[in-house]
């Protein structure tokens, strides 16, 4: 009886793994298709669609745009998030709970609605659609995340560490640069990394707020209009590969930085 239950459990786990991996395997497999349709039977392997992607100026410039928006908006998010988390954690401010709630509020609102709001505002104020506009939207969604992560890590122990530094004669800016930032580095890093991945993958805000120059997810979306196409498989597989490399890299570096 026990053995049957165990067997059933393992079969179940394998089935779920299968479900989770099915679309990814299909995606990658048919990116190597030699013919023009990413459907069975498999005719590859061939790298022609990867060549097509890399020689497509629209896709490569969208990739650069995406990276730029992701890095810059994440830097802005993590900086604003860190400073505000530090301010709220270290000082007694009137209405602190309310203000903290305000900063984290965008976390509970759909990207679509945030994007809509910015679209209406920018339209009304005459701000043209651009990558900067999309970047602003990305900071709106990632700032609360960075704030929440960093704020949650600023415990009493950190407060005492900063006190010790002040007690030993460090000026406020030295406490910040020499103590707080290095000690909070894992949380800052985590906030930055998460912001990067969310911005990198964000579609609807970029879709609403950019026009000619746009980000990779929007460009992929444009590709989709031409129906099933191994080129889309190839670009999707490339994005996936880059993400995996990044995840493994961060996983290893974060694991190595095990705090005491």
């Amino acid at each position: 009886m026990r053995a049957i239950v165990r067997l059933a459990a393992w079969l179940y786990a394998i089935a779920i793994y299968g479900f989770i991996f099915l679309p990814v395997v299909v995606l990658v497999l048919f990116s190597l298709q030699a013919t023009s349709f990413p459907i069975p039977p498999f005719t590859g392997p061939s790298l022609r669609w990867y060549q097509a992607v890399l020689s497509d100026a629209r896709l490569t410039s969208a990739l650069v745009n995406s990276l730029l928006v992701a890095v810059l908006s994440s830097l802005a998010s993590v900086t604003l998030g860190f400073l505000s988390a530090w301010g709220f954690a270290r000082f007694v401010l009137p209405g602190s709970a309310f203000l903290r709630g305000l900063i984290t509020l965008p976390l509970t609102v759909s990207y679509l609605i945030i994007g809509m709001g910015l679209l209406v505002l920018f339209n009304w104020a005459g701000v043209p659609k651009s990558l900067v506009a999309a970047g602003i939207g990305h900071v709106v969604i990632n700032l609360p995340l960075c704030f929440a992560i960093i704020y949650s890590q600023m415990g009493d122990h950190q407060i005492n560490i900063e006190r010790a530094a002040r007690d030993l004669g460090a000026a406020e800016w030295k406490v910040l640069l020499m103590i707080t930032v290095p000690v909070m580095a894992p949380a800052i890093f985590a906030g930055f990394f998460l912001s990067m991945t969310f911005s990198w993958d964000e579609f609807v805000i970029s879709f609403l707020l950019t026009r000619f120059e746009t980000t990779l997810p929007v460009e992929i979306w444009n590709l989709l209009r031409s129906g099933l196409n191994p080129k889309t498989n190839a670009v999707g597989s490339l994005v996936f590969a880059v993400s995996i490399v990044l995840v493994v890299f961060f996983e290893l570096t974060l694991l190595r930085r095990k705090p005491a």
Binding site: I20, V24, F203, L216, I220, T232, V235, G236, V239, F240
Partner: peptide, 8 residues
């Protein structure tokens, strides 16, 4: 597969 692009 979380890390594939969401459109993809």
């Amino acid at each position: 597969p979380f890390w594939t692009s969401y459109v993809v």
